[in-house]
Design a binder for these strands. Structure first.
Lengths: 157, 157
DNA sequence: GGCGTTATACTCGGATACCACGTGTCCGAGTACCCCCGG
DNA sequence: CCGGGGGTACTCGGACACGTGGTATCCGAGTATAACGCC
């Protein structure tokens, strides 16, 4: 039940991109320097967010990454599930139907109780993350911090 | 964010033990046959639950495993955190304080917003699992299934 | 027949290999920019 | 001075090793049982 370490990186990078002016981009190298992260690996993970439709990438000079949608439409769940996959952590393999104690088929019409409870918990987790957007996160930052980020990630003219 | 496969095994084994008469035990071999699981690995994982205080083990003939507490006092969270560890899946490493964009110390007096939101989600997940006890799970099974489990796991006299 | 001793077989418990996924790194393809040249 | 073409440097994108933790397995330590012999 460990999330990849890169999850933290991508959350912070996405939050940083959400603080930039509309349409502005930041390169993988800039974002890596901004938080002192390994450039190559961060770039690899940023691609994951692009494939998931959370970020958009532009190649060439003055290219880079930007949010693919307004910050209010990107939730923490989108980012987490993009980097970690959307499959639930608990997977019911129906072991109740195997072995000497295999439940009779008529008892298996209803889904496995344990699977249901585990799915409920996972859904509670997803709901909590889906309730927080990048706009919410940025909104909780002080204006001075926000301005600082914009200034530091501004592209050299 | 994958839970070990053995999580399902231990949940089902614990539920089976919760259906046994007070004080009755079942050996690792019995439980393994009951669900067609690898005996040795299951035994290793059952030990984990013993160390966590969820199960109690008795050695020697007619020994085996039993619940260490009443089924109503054992929640799904106890079992899941015993097998998977209690550390939260998201760990804040304070990357906001590193790199060129390191936040000034006075801005870091409040905890990292992202870490708080991730912790909230984890807490929602834990709360959901903590709300379901083994007694609840067993209570949702039909009496016929429950009697069948007791009969199949009864020790030969 | 009852009791103590011994042998036994069954149980858990920890130490030891194997494999997959996350971590980390590299080089190649593509493109927007900028400079230079010609008109 | 203006427009077009080519070179360049910067960007992302995917393919290639390494390490840690879950998966799987084995054999050894301990104990309650049961049988046996003795009183």
């Amino acid at each position: 039940m460990k999330l990849p370490v890169s999850t933290e990186w991508l959350l912070h990078c996405s939050a940083a991109l959400a603080q930039l002016p509309q349409g502005a981009t930041a390169s993988a190298a800039q974002l890596a320097r901004h938080h002192d992260l390994p450039v190559a690996y961060l770039a690899k993970q940023l691609q994951t967010l692009v494939r998931a439709g959370v970020l958009a990438a532009t190649t060439g000079p003055r290219g880079g990454f930007r949010l693919a949608r307004p910050a209010a439409d990107i939730t923490l769940l989108h980012i987490v599930e993009a980097v970690d996959g959307a499959s639930p952590p608990y997977e019911c393999r129906e072991i109740r139907q195997r072995g000497l104690g295999a439940a009779p088929p008529e008892a298996c019409l209803a889904p496995c109780v344990l699977a249901v409870k585990m799915a409920d918990a996972h859904e509670a987790w997803r709901r909590s993350l889906a309730g927080v957007s990048l706009a919410d996160v940025v909104g909780e930052l002080s204006p001075s911090v926000r301005g600082r980020t914009r200034r530091l990630l501004a592209r050299p003219r």
